[in-house]
Amino acid sequence: MFLLIGRRLLQSMVTVIAAVTLIFLLFSVIPGTFVSSLAGDKRDIDPKVLERIETELGLNDPLPTRFANYIGNLVRGDLGTSFATQRPVTAVLSARIWASFKLACAAIGFAVIVGLPLGFVAAVKQGTWMDTTAMMTAVSGLSIPAFWFGLLTMYFISLKLGWLPTFGYGNGGFRHLILPALTLGIAPMALLARTSRAAVLETMNADFIRTARSKGNTETRIVVRHMARNAFVLVLTTIGLQFGSMLGGSVVIENLFAWPGIGALLTQSVSMRDIPMVQGCILLIVLFFLVINTLVDIAYLLIDPRIRYR
């Protein structure tokens, strides 16, 4: 078990290094720098000042030097200083990670709590109106763009009905969390409904379920003791992947709801070419994804005796 975790971490390191390098190179080739974004605001800034800023931020150094500096600092746990605010990137990130994490957890929670039962009911009542309704909900959930769904909820639930706050973090309370989490969770929910329907159908027709029935089990006991775990194994990967990509996927939603998380920070930083900040955000998103996936692997080990990683 510990060997596995260790090995997974090592493998993850490779992914992290690749991601970091790619992002660094990408931002060195896209047009525009932090300085040009400052000047682009039509503010009258003395070119000499701009030049000085450029030199101070090290933007004029050759690429290999900049990369070496970045990696060197990264190894020491220093993600650099934001160009825009001059605050350490780690400090800004740690101030914002909690909001994003809360949102991701709420969204995946919603997706699992609604999506799994929906898929389960659809499978058990296969071919009935319940199945059709559940799957139509799922297809709609997958095809409606999240930002559009978000706007709709804002308009109807907040503006028209006045039930929930429109946007913002508030004091971090639950009421502010509901709409963004719903919007972020709708697509994963729909996907989970579809996967779990397929998983339950597959399990339902398995030979060992027939065996369980021939033993004289009640239908409830068959579902609880024989079907649930087997079907869940098939859905677990989807849950993991969806949860892992949630931090990165929340970029649009966080902006829409003015949610002070990593996603909103990322868009701001990209438009300002605040490279250290962007790199920090992406590093965090990648790490989150890797951690969740490692957790899923471990969960598999605990649930499915057939899986033994070597």
Binding site: A206, D207, F208, R210, T211, A212, S214, H226, R229, N230, V233, I303, D304, P305, R306
Partner: peptide, 11 residues
């Protein structure tokens, strides 16, 4: 049953 490979619950 005929198929001992699949007739038992794998978990």
């Amino acid at each position: 049953f005929q198929e001992p490979m699949t007739s038992l619950n794998p978990l």
